[in-house]
Simulated scan of single mutants.
Amino acid sequence: MITVVGIGEDGLDGLSPAARILVDGAEVLVGGARHLAMVPAGAAERLEWASPFAESRALLESRAERRVVVLASGEPLWFGAAATLIGWFGAAAVSVVPHPGAFSLAAARMGWAMQDCLFLTIHGRPVESLALHLAPGRRLLVLAGDRASPAAVTALLRAHGAGASRVLVLENLGGTGERITDADACASDLCVVAVECVFDKGVRPLSLAPGLPDEAFEHDGQLTKRDIRAATLAALAPLPGQVLWDVGAGSGSIAIEWMRAGGRALAIEGKPDRLERIARNAARLGVPGLEIVAGRAPDALPLDREPPDAIFVGGGVSEAGLLDICWSALGRGGRLVANAVTMEGEAALVALFGLHGGEMTRLAVAHLDRVGGFHAWHPAMTVTRYVGWKK
């Protein structure tokens, strides 16, 4: 049995009597150097986490018959080591003794109700991921990666038109060096950044609903336009944690909006300039974790991976065999959505419909525009959409 004991900046003095007994009785004491230094030398073997962290698994497995106590910051299941250990060894083999963590202490110092806050981390993660969560009045508590993190957060807020946000830094929470300061004065790597989002006058925050404005994306014209994109994403039906392949991604708009809805995605694109553009769009729109695959479909399709939950084909629909390969790659219950604007592309969709059934829809959109001193409707190209669910 591995016991994970949450410990704060107040060290052993802050532990409950039961937690203190567990630490004192350990045969193997595991943790980072900072946590191990909080415990006076004793009979227990001391073991620092390996680097890379994944190599710690073998160290723990070799001591499975001994009383192993792991020291972890605060609440070990909140962006903490306990979740990883349970993934390795199972819940039955890991016991967790929580302690007030940085988030609960930060909320207490700010006087913010925890149910009204969003808890995030940029410890080992890109600061750009915060952009997804910016909304007027939203309260964010962000676990920092180091003392440079608060300045990076304020820079991101300014870049997204939220420079008027209230930002405070809470350092060394629970310890003797605890203090609250502003982003420019941060002097500790152990800090939480508290953000109360306020957008600058005239800025329109981006919604998480499908159909971001076209101008939100950098593109070269290869972009599924807003109205069609919203309808396409509705057909794809994104769900948290599910995986999308965006084939012929162009600007990456479909994959990016899928991820903004909580899924994971691969953007498959063959043109180098578009690959860079997709990466910039993903970072700016809060999903820097988008995986970008360089290459032309179908050759670049990662067919050796687990089947995706959904595939969108927006480019190369008429490519010989592409739709059949994509259909075969789907897992059970997966859905394939493909759009076409040419007769050749539409013929490929009709053939797919004949083989597998599904839905065929024509989408026609017109926008009002000026014609001299008058206004008139300007129709966009009609899009034929195929939607199929794999039984």
Rank of each mutant, 00 (worst) to 15 (best):
Q115F: 13
Q115G: 14
D116S: 15
C117I: 05
L118S: 10
F119Y: 07
L120Q: 10
I122T: 14
H123I: 05
H123E: 03
G124V: 11
R125G: 05
R125I: 12
P126E: 14
V127L: 12
V127A: 11
E128Y: 06
E128R: 06
A131P: 11
A131C: 09
L132C: 05
L132E: 09
H133N: 09
A135W: 00
P136L: 00
G137H: 13
R139Y: 04
R139P: 03
R139G: 06
L141V: 02
V142R: 04
V142E: 02
L143E: 01
L143M: 09
G145W: 02
G145K: 08
G145R: 10
G145S: 06
R147K: 15
R147E: 13
A148N: 13
A148E: 14
A148H: 15
A148G: 15
S149F: 08
S149A: 14
S149R: 06
P150V: 09
P150G: 11
A151T: 13
A151R: 15
A152T: 02
A152F: 01
A152E: 09
V153H: 04
V153D: 01
V153C: 07
T154D: 11
A155H: 09
A155V: 05
A155M: 14
L156S: 03
L157P: 09
R158K: 13
A159D: 12
G161L: 01
A162V: 06
G163N: 10
A164T: 09
S165M: 10
R166Y: 14
R166Q: 15
V167N: 03
V167H: 01
V167S: 06
V169Y: 02
V169S: 12
E171D: 06
E171N: 05
N172S: 13
N172C: 06
G174V: 12
G174M: 14
G175A: 00
G177F: 07
R179N: 07
I180F: 07
T181M: 03
T181E: 11
D182H: 13
D182V: 07
D184P: 06
D184N: 15
A185D: 15
C186R: 00
C186T: 10
D189S: 15
D189T: 07
L190F: 12
C191L: 04
V192R: 00
V193R: 02
A194V: 07
A194K: 05
V195H: 04
V195A: 01
E196H: 15
E196N: 12
C197N: 03
C197Q: 06
V198D: 11
D200P: 12
G202F: 10
G202M: 11
G202Y: 14
V203F: 10
R204Y: 02
P205T: 11
S207T: 10
